[in-house]
């Protein structure tokens, strides 16, 4: 029995490791396609131009308010046009490249780092980290998020990446499906996010020790473990990014899906921009998170899989929580 599980675990690890370069390759192709569409992608200094463009946007009064003022017609049209350009000239290509870059960084990191400690359950002891409900909520949210991310990315980048590969007819169907699917799952994501935040917020308030953790970069580079509680500062940042980023995405998404309140085109354009940028940032974040939650930190995945983590893993990554659990007698014998 025992050997069987070890072999299995090993096999999964290997297959996931193989997946990473494959995904990376895929996205590189995507990126290249986008770049070609843009004429070789020779943009001198994208960052500066992007933010200049943002700053040059229409007056704040217009973009922030849903009230359509008198005599603003011209401005609206002009601003809307500008933002559309912003989206297709900057958000799409640079967002796409940013995601590819993120994957590149993660791959590089994975390859050069010294191999991380494995926690194969040799301690024979486990601690319950996430009860069933927590795990159900995490995957409910993660699942809907990933679905939205994929369908959203098809909407944003499909024209550059998928269209050339499959031709206009098939792409029409894919785009239509993505749009329907994206609109459908948006509200489901909002529900899952709300439930998730309600359940997890309390454990994510910043506390003493978080600054020190951050200052040491979580020990990611030094390879030394830094003292942490139930969640470390990095996870807390992820949590609040998803909370507020998710809020921004949700509000902007709802405004886009339901143009019922007489939103101006102007507002819609702005929302599309907010939605796209926030989504890209979160997707990039979750790349990192998904890496750390699986192959990046061996042993972590158990937390969201069986809900039980190896006691040694807990001691290494969340020592203060481990101590608490020890004091409360919550460390259990591992099921054989």
């Amino acid at each position: 029995m025992k050997t069987g599980t070890t072999v299995n675990r090993h096999a999964t690890r290997q297959s996931t490791t193989w997946l990473l370069p494959v995904v990376w390759l895929l996205l590189t192709i995507c990126g290249t396609a986008v770049a070609e569409e843009q004429g070789g992608g020779a943009v001198p200094n994208p960052g500066i131009e992007l933010w200049r463009a943002v700053r040059e946007g229409p007056p704040p009064g217009v973009s922030r308010s849903q009230v359509e003022g008198i005599g603003m017609t011209t401005l609206i049209a002009e601003g809307g046009e500008r933002w559309r350009q912003l989206r297709s000239n900057y958000v799409a290509p640079w967002g796409g490249w940013a995601l590819v870059g993120m994957l590149g960084v993660l791959t590089l990191f994975h390859l050069v780092r010294k191999s991380p400690e494995r926690f194969d359950g040799s301690s024979g002891k486990v601690i319950v980290r996430f009860p069933d409900y927590d795990r159900i909520l995490h995957w409910f949210m993660a699942g809907t998020f990933l679905f939205l991310a994929i369908s959203g990315l098809i909407l944003l980048l499909g024209r550059y990446v998928i269209l050339p590969l499959v031709g206009p007819q098939a792409f029409g169907a894919i785009a239509s499906a993505s749009k329907e699917g994206h609109n459908l799952f948006g509200p489901v994501f909002i529900v899952s996010l709300t439930l998730f935040v309600l359940r997890f917020a309390q454990r994510n308030f910043f506390a003493r020790g978080d600054l020190a953790w951050l200052a040491k970069g979580g020990g990611m580079l030094s390879g030394k473990h830094v003292s942490a509680g139930f969640f470390n500062a990095g996870e807390k940042i992820l949590f609040w990014s998803i909370t507020f980023g998710g809020l921004a995405i949700s509000i902007s998404g709802l405004i886009l899906v339901f143009p019922l309140f007489g939103q101006s085109r102007e507002l819609m354009q702005l929302m599309l921009l907010v939605h796209g940028i926030a989504a890209l940032v979160l997707i990039a974040f979750t790349f990192g998170h998904m890496y750390l939650g699986s192959i990046g930190l061996p042993g972590s995945f158990n937390a969201m899989n069986t809900g039980k983590v190896d006691a040694d893993w807990a001691h290494a990554h969340h020592d203060r929580w481990h101590r608490e659990a020890e004091e409360k007698g919550l460390i259990e014998k591992a099921p054989s």
Binding site: R135, W139, F140, G143, F185, P187
Partner: peptide
């Protein structure tokens, strides 16, 4: 949307 939410949660529960 309601049906999807229910189905996903049920299936996740089955898995988890």
């Amino acid at each position: 949307e309601i049906a999807f939410a229910g189905l996903i949660v049920l299936w996740l529960r089955r898995l988890l």
